[in-house]
Every structure is written in structure tokens, then in C-alpha cells.
Simulated scan of single mutants.
Amino acid sequence: MTEHAPVELEEDLYCIGCGAKIQTTDPVKPGYTPMSALKKGLETNELYCQRCFRLRHYNEIVPVGLTDDDFLRLLSQIRDADALIVYVMDIFDFNGSLIPGLHRFVGNNPILLVGNKEDILPSSIRRSKLKDWLRQRANEAGIKPVDVALVSAKTNQSVDSLLKQIDKYRKGRDVYIVGVTNVGKSTLINQIIRQNTGRKDLITTSRFPGTTLDRIEIPLDDDHVLVDTPGIIHAEQMAHYLNGNDLKIVSPQKQIKPKVYQLNEAQTLFFGGVARFDYLSGEKHGFTVYVENNLYVHRTKLENAEHLYETQLGQLLTPPSSEADIADFPPLVRHEFKTTRKSDLVIEGLGWITLPADVTVAGWAPKGVDVILRNSMI
């Protein structure tokens, strides 16, 4: 028998990393597992598909044929459930964490809003104010959470408090955990599993978008389940345009150290080669930048910016760093704003710059990545 010959499995088996149904037939479809790996997984009781195995051991992403319609079909099951919806968002990338039309998926089910990656934000930000800010932004998006929780799944910070809130609001029902890709949802669920069972890193986690392919059910202690749903993929996320090493430089790994840049009008800041900020008009001001600490920020005159980017992308201005990534990197698109109050210019997936009132600026991001102006978080 060849490795890829069809094999009839006696029972349905599912990858414990991403939830996909195991199959040994088609290497490009979800759940593919070579027969040798299937046998080993059954022996050890830790059955991973080939994609999750490579993610766990080599941080290597393997594309699969799953469409946006597949994700929406899986999420639509939530509407008919009687459950608490735990909506996980990335505090650092709130707008990039929004699920468009979430109300259509949750029906009348209550929503507990969870702001993840709290450890990344400076400790000077009052947590009570941050919760209020998250609730206000959620309300603007049509989401009315019953409560707001702040956690750091990566460091296990406040996960025990979240579990108490989940128990309080679920009232004996199932729990559905939803979120877009890259918000740390699977990491959070791994922490929950570890606290309940002692097992570590059961679900596949990665910096890459879209690692959970189907719903994963985790038993609770009263015959109900906690369901990990697939992450909705936002095509606009910065993560889609960078490789794993470059993504490390763009995605904050530790608590951000804000940097203040005193700028005159007609000055530009480059954030590696992935984004750009132009100060177009206004008095001399300090602009506070919140991005990953290791991302190189380069200041220049606005009149030199175009030439600098053309000649230094991949050299002085990185990431992107490899020739292949530079060739595939989308052009930067300009978004102009004039402030009337203290505001944040947000480049989704990268960070933000806090602006004073009465200035005109432009933010540049890869084509498809949103740049927005919001009320200042701080």
C-alpha cells in the first residue's frame, strides 16, 4: 500500500491540535496524516495532523484548502446554541480583532469580552480605564458584552479570574470561544486545559493566521463543553504579509516601551519597511509611538521619504528582509487624517501613534491593511 492510498478508518478521528478530521488520502486537505504518523499517534494517544505536527516542531505553516465560507459555516453553529460566548480580542490590535457582523453569529447568547495580551501594554495604563475603553469600542461596533476581562494567555496572567467569570456567566451552559486569527485564542484555551487537566500545549498555537481548522470540544465538569471555534481570517492583517522571523520583529513579544519623537511638520517616521508616518502640518509636537520594542524606527525629511523607501527597502528599512518577501510585499498606501482632539493613528497589526489635537498627518500601510483614527487609549 502506498502512503497516499485511500484508507478506511474504523472510526472518525480528529487532530487534537486543530480539530480537523483525520484523513490519510489527500496531503493538501485539512486533517492529512501519513499512515505511519497515524499509527504512532494512536499508540501515544496524541494524534496530530501533519500540518499541526510541523507547526509544533518546526513552526512551519502548511496551507490547506479551507475557504472563508468554511469558517463562516462553522461559526454559524453558534447562533443555534444556548451558550456563553467568550469573545477574545487582542488589546494591542483591537480593530484588527473585530469580527464583522458578530451579532449575526451569536444570536441572543451573552458575550463575555476578553482583552488578551494585557502584558504587552505599559503598566502606566490604568486597567479600569482600559476595560471602559474596550467596552466603549465594542459598543461602537454593536457588541454589548455582559462583562469585560483582561488576561495574558501567554503568561497565564488573570486566567484564573477569567475562569471564575466564565463560570459565573455561563450558568450551566456550554461555552463557545471565538476570535479572529492571531489574538491568542488557542494559547488561552491551552491555559484553561492546563488548569483543568494538567496537560500542556494540547492545541496547536502559532504566530501564523488560521491554525484552528474546526471546532474543538473540551469537556467541562458538568456534562457541558468549552468549544474552540476556528479563527476568522482577516485578510487585512499584517501577519499575512510577513514570514515568521519578520513577524517576530513586528508583533510585540514583551511589554511595550513607548517612545516619544519630537517632530516638526514635513518629517517622516519609517517603521522598518512595513509602514510609514508623515507629519504634514502643525506646530512642533511630541508623538508617542507604541510598537514592538525591536522594530527599527527611522526618522527622515518628508521630501526624502519616497527615494529612501525605494532604495533602502530590505536594507536599512527591514522587515521585510528576504528578496522573495520584498518582491511579494504589497505597496504602501497613504491614509490622511486631521485631528480635532487627542487621538491614536492605528496601523492594524503594528501599533499606534498618539497624536495631539489640530494636526494633519498621513499613515502608510501595506495595501489591504487598515489605518484608522480613534479616540486615544491613553
Results as ranks from 00 to 15, higher is better:
residue 7 V to W: 00
residue 7 V to D: 01
residue 8 E to P: 00
residue 8 E to G: 01
residue 9 L to G: 00
residue 16 I to V: 03
residue 20 A to Q: 02
residue 35 M to R: 15
residue 36 S to K: 15
residue 40 K to Q: 11
residue 46 E to N: 05
residue 47 L to K: 00
residue 51 R to D: 01
residue 54 R to W: 04
residue 54 R to I: 09
residue 58 Y to N: 02
residue 61 I to P: 00
residue 68 D to P: 05
residue 73 R to Q: 14
residue 74 L to V: 01
residue 74 L to C: 01
residue 76 S to W: 07
residue 76 S to Y: 14
residue 79 R to F: 09
residue 79 R to W: 06
residue 91 I to A: 09
residue 93 D to F: 00
residue 104 R to P: 11
residue 105 F to D: 07
residue 108 N to Y: 08
residue 111 I to H: 04
residue 112 L to C: 11
residue 116 N to M: 07
residue 116 N to Y: 03
residue 118 E to P: 00
residue 125 I to Y: 01
residue 129 K to R: 05
residue 130 L to V: 05
residue 133 W to E: 01
residue 136 Q to H: 12
residue 137 R to Q: 15
residue 143 I to T: 02
residue 144 K to P: 04
residue 145 P to I: 06
residue 145 P to A: 13
residue 146 V to I: 13
residue 148 V to C: 11
residue 150 L to C: 04
residue 156 N to D: 12
residue 157 Q to M: 03
residue 162 L to Y: 08
residue 162 L to C: 11
residue 167 D to N: 10
residue 171 K to D: 13
residue 174 D to N: 08
residue 174 D to R: 07
residue 180 V to Q: 11
residue 183 V to E: 10
residue 188 L to A: 07
residue 195 Q to V: 13
residue 200 K to V: 14
residue 201 D to E: 15
residue 202 L to Y: 11
residue 205 T to K: 12
residue 207 R to N: 06
residue 215 R to P: 05
residue 225 V to A: 10
residue 236 E to M: 14
residue 238 M to G: 05
residue 241 Y to T: 07
residue 244 G to M: 11
residue 247 L to R: 09
residue 250 V to W: 02
residue 266 A to F: 14
residue 270 F to V: 09
residue 274 V to L: 07
residue 280 L to E: 06
residue 280 L to V: 11
residue 283 E to N: 09
residue 285 H to M: 12
residue 289 V to H: 00
residue 291 V to W: 08
residue 291 V to A: 04
residue 295 L to Y: 03
residue 298 H to K: 15
residue 300 T to N: 02
residue 300 T to V: 09
residue 303 E to K: 15
residue 319 P to R: 07
residue 319 P to A: 12
residue 320 P to T: 11
residue 321 S to T: 15
residue 322 S to V: 06
residue 327 A to G: 07
residue 331 P to G: 14
residue 332 L to C: 13
residue 337 F to W: 10
residue 339 T to N: 06
residue 341 R to D: 14
residue 347 I to Q: 08
residue 351 G to N: 08
residue 367 K to R: 10
residue 376 S to P: 04
residue 376 S to R: 05
